[in-house]
Structures are given as structure tokens and as C-alpha cells.
Amino acid sequence: MTVVLETRGLEKRFDAVVAARDINAEIFESEVLGIIGSNGAGKTTFVNMVTGYLQPSSGQILYRGRDITGMETRDITRLGICRSFQIPQLFLELTALDNVLIALSVARERRPVLFRPVVTREIVDEALELLAKFRIEHVAHQEVTALPQGVRKLIDIAMATVANPDLLFLDEPTSGVSAEEKMDMMEVLISALQSTNTAVLFIEHDMEIIERFSPRVMAFYEGTILADGPTADVLRNEKVREFVVGQEFHRNGTAATMKGTA
């Protein structure tokens, strides 16, 4: 299997606080990888560093063998590393379709285009198709402010996929979505992404979802990776059970909507 992304000794400090320390991770082509850990464990910091939003204090980030440490977010995006957000980052006063249209047109053009209209039938069709892929085409003409959180999350993710990324980070795709809808939403998501060979890494607090959708899992604790491996092994790990999963989760249990501890 080819390694898409590798980090070596990644560290992030904010003054005296260490948000991430000694992060050594490898992500392989087209895999689905889950990340667990309580709030403040360094999961989002990790994603922020890898996507160039935060500069690591030390360490290296390699994309297909190439050092991308310190690159700007936009350049990393252009390389094919994209992400969605815990709080959807959308253009709130515009419609769902407009949001996707903007994403598509930016992804399409590397140089700024000034005087050619962006709205053509082709690009609108493409945008609607993308919304349909995430089964939200019915809200295309609604303003984002009027839409529920779950739909916003899907738009946010759809926008992250416009450039057919090589590697996609989903930051808590199911947070803010009701427990009953979570499974369905992940189903939609994973099936929409499976048609491409995008490697997907998602941060998740719900162990049921982790077990169901990610063959491999990384557990974060206080800024470090506590365990990394096949999901079943990691969830059986003593330390992971103690510090990350907590006691209420049982291997075959049904009562398993995990919440972060902090």
C-alpha cells in the first residue's frame, strides 16, 4: 500500500500548552481511518497542522514523500488534501447550490477569471449532481442559514470533495446530528466517497460509527497518539479503554453514544 501522508515528530505548542506532541502517523491510499479521543486531545490540531492552518512548532509533514511542512492551506488544498469542519464553514447568506458553485469554480480555475460568467448550465448540472450524490439536492435553492446542522455538514463535506481530493479529513462529520440520523448520514457519506479512491480520515466520538465504518483507528490522548491499528485491537487496548473510550462502552453493547469527556 502506498503511503499518502506521513508525519514525523509533529509538535504544536501554544506558549506553555502542548497541543500536540510527537505525532507520527501514516495514512495509506484509499483507506478509511477513524480518529478518536476526548475534546482537547489534539485531533483538530493535528488536522489543522496537516492542512496548513496551523504551523507546527516542530516536526515534518510529508505528502507522497514530499515535504509540505509550512505550506499555505490553499497550496495544500491544490495538492489534493482537503477537509471539512466541525463547525461547517459555509457562505451562510447564499444558497446551498451557490456554495457548491463557488467551490467548483474555484477548484476549476487556477488563475483568476475576471470577465467570463461563472454560471453555465454545465457547472450548475455538475453542482446539482454533487448535491444529489450527498442526497441533499432538494435544498439546492435554499439559503444555508435556513438549513439544519446535518444538511450543513453534508454541504460542507460536498464542498471539500469538489477537487476530487487524494486525502480528505472530516472533522466530526456527525457532531450536531441527532443520534438516529448519524448512521444514515455516515452511510450516505461513505458511499458517496467510495466511488473515488480518496483516503478518508474522520474524527468521531461515536464508537459504533467507528466500528462500523473505519477498519483502522488512531486514538489521541493529551496531544499524543495513544494507539494506532485495526479498530478492534485499538478499542480493546487497556489504555484506550481507560483514557479515551471510557467504561460505558462495551464490545457488543448497544448503549454506545459516546460523548467527549471535557
Binding site: 492542512t51 492552518y53 499555505e72 492551506t73 490553499r74 488544498t77 482537503c82 477537509r83 464553514q89 459555509l90 457562505f91 451562510l92 447568506e93 447564499l94 451557490d98 458553485l101 463557488i102 467551490a103 469554480s105 474555484v106 477548484a107 476549476r108 480555475e109 483568476p112 477569471v113 475576471l114 470577465f115 467570463r116 460568467p117 461563472v118 464542498m159 471539500a160 469538489v162
Partner: peptide
């Protein structure tokens, strides 16, 4: 144009623009 659209987007959310 696409740049005009980016202008609208700029008003709403710059983080997303960078991530696009």
C-alpha cells in the same frame, strides 16, 4: 465571473476560501 463569486464568498467566509 468566478472572481466576482469569490468576492461574495470573501464577505462570508475567508477560511473556506483558503480551504478551496
Amino acid at each position: 465571473s468566478p472572481m466576482g463569486y469569490v468576492g461574495e464568498a470573501l464577505r462570508e467566509n475567508e477560511i473556506r476560501i483558503e480551504y478551496l
